[in-house]
């Protein structure tokens, strides 16, 4: 009996082989490099608009963005993958990134995805997950079987149905952050940018189906989301991105995210931005979540590559097929 259990215990306790930021980005970019483009979530469109803050979170954080008022942003809607011309509807994950440039000393960048949790809790295991995804269905099935921490992610994936618009998705912070109030007290939070419209995925066609849909939707009127924060309890682990917090936790709607214009990513202001979620204003701090910490260094490596490609002229606009 003990002998039978040994391999399972070894799997559960063995720490994964360590990878560097360079190895991680090498794996993400794959064999085909698209110079000048992001190594992950390469395909996207720029959006801009404003955050209409209702002031509800100002008691929890000193960040000026949460005071009652209006704060403009530059944002980006994107799909997972390394290919800047990939078909919109084939990607398993959709994303919204925002950049608030409040002042010369206060900036906030946010990068959010459709899944609310990660399948794994650290970057080195995440590397193995991407390897398994690239290796095919059998490998990924085996990977999930060997990683019971992926349970909540798989439960979400099983019930998730991609909608017919970027406007009708929920975008999650996934990782937790601390809000710091005027007294210096910190509160762990996660957030979700929730849609106010429901759009079914019917009759959609073409590689740019989602981008085209969003562009015409915004032309017709503002696209609005509710920005909902979830406050952790003392029993919640803010450093584990594989675990959702119970539904009973307090939610606070901080206001609305209003998108009022879109543009192609090479024409808008979003292409130059590294949406590193660790660019934080005073009043918001990073948790020790290993995935969150790793995102910053992986994004930095991806950004360095594409920024240097733009500088040296290696950047080429790919034909959209």
């Amino acid at each position: 009996m003990a002998l039978l259990l040994t391999p399972a215990i070894a799997l559960a306790t063995e720490s994964p082989a360590k990878v560097t930021a360079q190895q991680f980005v090498d794996l993400q970019q794959g064999n085909t490099v698209y110079p000048g483009f992001r190594r992950a979530h390469a395909k996207g469109m720029c959006v801009s608009g404003e955050f209409r803050s209702n002031g509800q979170l100002s008691a929890y954080s000193t960040a000026t963005v949460f005071q009652r008022g209006v704060m403009p942003f530059t944002g980006r809607l994107s799909i997972a993958g390394n290919n800047p011309t990939a078909p919109d509807l084939k990607a398993p994950v959709r994303s919204l990134a925002l950049s608030f440039a409040m002042s010369s000393t206060q900036q906030w960048r946010l990068a959010m995805n459709t899944p609310p949790v990660m399948a794994v809790a650290d970057p080195h295991t995440f590397y193995q997950q991407i390897q398994a995804i690239q290796a095919g269905p059998a490998a990924i099935k085996q990977f999930f079987a060997e990683h019971p921490e992926s349970k909540e992610f798989l439960t979400w994936a099983a019930q998730y149905e991609a909608s017919g618009s970027f406007a009708s998705e929920t975008y999650n912070s996934i990782n937790a952050f601390y809000l710091i109030n005027p007294d210096g007290k910190r509160q762990a939070v996660r957030w979700a940018i929730q849609p106010t419209v429901a759009v079914a995925a019917t009759d959609m066609q073409g590689a740019n189906a989602l981008q085209n849909e969003m562009a015409s939707r915004v032309l017709a009127g503002n696209v609005v989301f509710d920005w909902v924060f979830t406050l952790a309890d003392v029993t919640d682990d803010e450093n584990n991105a594989t675990k959702a917090w119970p539904d009973s936790r307090q939610n606070i709607t901080a206001g609305q995210i209003v998108i009022n214009s879109t543009s192609a990513q090479l024409e808008g202001g979003c292409h130059a931005i590294n949406f590193d979620p660790l660019v934080l204003p005073t009043g918001i701090e990073a948790t020790a979540d290993p995935i969150l910490r790793a995102r910053s260094s992986a994004y930095a490596e991806s950004y360095r590559r594409r920024a240097t490609e733009q500088l040296t002229g290696a950047f080429k606009e790919p034909k959209n097929d």
């Binding site: 970057p123 990073a286 020790a288 910053s296």
Partner: peptide, 13 residues
């Protein structure tokens, strides 16, 4: 720090 994905990277940076 430019090579690391570990949690101390942010602190050192």
């Amino acid at each position: 720090m430019v090579a690391s994905l570990d949690g101390w990277q942010l602190t050192v940076l």
